[in-house]
Simulated scan of single mutants.
Amino acid sequence: MLLNVAFLCLSIRKSPFIINRKKTVLTLTILYSIIATIKYSKEGAMSAIDLIILGMIKEKPMSAYDLQKNVEYRHISKWVKISTPSVYKKVITLEDKGYINGKTDNENSTLGKVIYSITDKGNDYFISLMKKTSEKMVNVFLDFNAVIVNLNNIDKELGLSLAENISKEIDRYYSVVDKKIEEREHIPFTGKTILKQQLMVGEALKEWSDEFIKTYRQEGEK
């Protein structure tokens, strides 16, 4: 798919039928960047999910249900794309690969809950993922950039309305994170520092949003 976009950019550059070649190539180049980011983000998300699940099990053996509840309680889905179905699927995959081992707990559960623990192979994989992930270039994927790149394709009034929507959601995101920091004073240092990180990201996005809307509005007045 990425290669197809690249070839399309080259063909448009030479095409006699495209009047505004520079603008079209620029748009496609940005789209290429977004597609590449999505691909990179998906690969990174899979590794992140592995790390989260293995880390929780390494900390304390638990069932898939407890893992899912832990993900919800820690609001991990707010900074890693992870859902309830993906937790259960990932547990099955990790067990199939020999990274975790499930044993039925008949003593403490009338339903025979399966409790998972990390294996030596899983621990080695966990450490290698920690090293690999820490060495990756930082990548920030924001869904609303797909809206920003298409603002030139709609009228200015609608574009400003959409930009205002994005700004409101950024403000809402900031407020939610700020509230969590106040509510979760008891959480470990690592959890607190991630919340602080997310708050600082929110601050930067708020500043960017204000500047963008101001500039976008001025462009329409020229």
Rank of each mutant, 00 (worst) to 15 (best):
G202E: 01
K121C: 02
S209G: 13
E207M: 11
A36N: 11
T37N: 11
T29A: 08
D50E: 02
I18D: 02
S33P: 05
N152C: 08
K69R: 14
K69G: 01
R21F: 06
G159W: 12
K222S: 10
H186T: 09
S77Y: 08
K179M: 15
L10P: 10
Y174C: 00
G202L: 01
P85F: 02
S117L: 00
S41N: 04
S175W: 00
V140W: 10
L129G: 02
Y40Q: 12
K156W: 08
I76F: 07
T104Y: 05
K103H: 12
K113P: 07
M200C: 06
T24S: 08
T24P: 11
K42F: 06
V147Y: 06
A6H: 09
E95F: 02
V80I: 05
G122T: 03
K89C: 11
F7Q: 05
K192E: 01
W79Y: 05
E203G: 02
I148F: 13
E221I: 01
D155M: 10
Q68M: 05
E203R: 09
D50Q: 01
H75V: 10
L199V: 01
T104A: 13
K136S: 01
N152R: 10
T37L: 06
I166R: 00
I19W: 14
V176C: 08
E157Y: 14
D66G: 05
T104K: 15
F189D: 12
E207F: 10
E157G: 09
E211H: 11
E135C: 08
D120V: 03
H186R: 12
M56E: 07
D143Q: 12
L26C: 06
I148L: 14
V147K: 07
M1Q: 05
N145S: 03
Y116H: 03
A64H: 09
D96F: 13
L2R: 09
K121N: 05
L26I: 10
D171T: 08
V87M: 03
T84I: 06
I100Y: 07
E59T: 07
H75W: 04
S47K: 05
L162P: 06
K14M: 08
M46Q: 04
K196E: 02
G102R: 00
L199F: 06
V201W: 02
F189T: 12
A163T: 00
S83A: 06
K78W: 05
N108I: 12
D124K: 06
V138M: 07
N123F: 15
E72L: 07
I49V: 03
C9F: 12
F189L: 14
G98T: 07
V87K: 02
E203H: 10
Y116M: 00
L28W: 13
A64V: 10
A163Y: 04
R184F: 15
G112N: 01
I76S: 02
L129H: 04
I49F: 00
K113M: 12
I12G: 04
I181L: 00
I154M: 05
S209I: 08
V114Q: 01
K69V: 09
V91P: 03
K103L: 14
D155G: 15
G159L: 04
V80W: 09
P188S: 11
L54I: 11
K206G: 11
I166M: 02
N150V: 03
T133R: 06
P85L: 03
N70Q: 10
Y174W: 04
T37P: 08
V114A: 00
S63G: 03
V5P: 01
E221N: 08
M46L: 01
T29S: 09
L2T: 14
